[in-house]
Amino acid sequence: MLILVIGLVIFFCLHSVRLVAPQWRESSMKEHGEMRWKMRFGLLTLMSTAFIVMGYMQMRVEPIWLWFPPVWTRHLAGLLVLVALFFVGSALVKNSTMKNKMGYPMLIGVKIWAFAHLISNGTVADVMIFGSFLVWSIVSFAVYRRRDRLAGVVYEQSEDSSVPANLIAFVFAMMSWFTIVFYLHQAIIGVSPLV
């Protein structure tokens, strides 16, 4: 459990810098260079993710069950993850409808992904991981939107057509979903979502 907790703490500390100290983040990026900042950030993110996966694997050996989710929650989770991936794709593509209207589709994608995994898994490790991601994404979204309102940022559809951007986000979601469901989930986590 300790490895999982360390991984989660590192991950959320890294990903909350913009949330709690945006000025320090910007000044550090200017001082050290954006590329160096991103490389360090990426390496620490990979390390924390590895800790989370290792800790999760250790806790799966002797799981502590809080509840036993019904089988239908797995099917619902699969559908919700597809929706989450569409939001992630929308965050990565310029001028997507979700980015123009919501501002932070990546955080919405994380919310949906975390919720999907919470309803379909019932161990302490699952609650620690997906519960913490759900809480973090909800808080982050609320803080960023509040900051935007105070700064007078308005979210609205761009005059340019967003159909190509939405199509790219959809293709990204479908390709990612099939890759995860039929290969990556089993390869990394050791559990097939199809079972």
Rank of each mutant, 00 (worst) to 15 (best):
F182K: 11
S176A: 15
L4R: 02
I108F: 14
M29K: 07
V181A: 10
V154W: 01
V163C: 07
V71G: 08
K99L: 14
S161I: 02
S176P: 08
I168W: 05
Q157F: 13
F133H: 00
D126Q: 10
E156K: 10
V135K: 05
I3N: 05
L46D: 01
L150D: 14
W37S: 05
V181I: 15
E31A: 14
L150E: 15
A169R: 00
V81M: 15
L14T: 00
M102R: 10
L80W: 04
V124W: 00
F86S: 07
E31M: 15
H117N: 11
G78Y: 12
S161E: 02
L150M: 15
G122Q: 05
T97W: 00
A21N: 02
L194S: 12
L85V: 07
Q58R: 15
F87L: 03
G78M: 11
A125V: 08
G103A: 05
L184E: 09
V71P: 06
G78D: 11
G42C: 07
K38G: 04
E156D: 11
M1A: 07
S96L: 05
S120R: 11
H185Y: 12
W136E: 08
E62I: 13
L184S: 10
R25F: 07
G55D: 02
P70H: 04
W72D: 09
M102C: 11
T45C: 07
R18W: 01
F170L: 15
V139I: 12
Q186P: 06
E62L: 11
L82V: 10
V124R: 02
A114K: 01
R60S: 13
S48K: 00
I112P: 08
W113V: 05
R149Y: 02
L194N: 10
I108L: 15
V191H: 12
L194E: 13
S158C: 10
R146F: 08
N121F: 09
R145F: 02
W65I: 05
L4N: 03
I108M: 15
K99Q: 14
V71A: 11
W67L: 11
M35E: 14
K94Y: 13
F182Y: 14
M174I: 13
I6C: 04
A169P: 01
F182L: 14
G122T: 05
T179D: 09
S176G: 12
A114G: 05
V110H: 01
S96G: 01
P63T: 07
I119A: 11
M174F: 15
M175L: 12
K38C: 03
Q23A: 03
S158T: 10
Q186G: 12
P69V: 00
A151I: 03
L150F: 13
H75P: 06
L14E: 00
G55I: 03
V81T: 14
M35D: 13
Y144V: 01
R74E: 08
E34T: 04
V171A: 14
L82H: 10
M102D: 09
W65V: 06
Y144K: 02
V17G: 02
V9G: 07
S16T: 00
Y56E: 06
K99M: 10
M57Q: 12
D126K: 03
W67P: 09
F68P: 06
I189L: 11
I188P: 09
S27W: 12
R25K: 15
P193N: 13
G109N: 03
A165F: 01
I180W: 06
S192T: 08
I119R: 03
P193H: 12
F51Y: 04
K94H: 13
L82G: 08
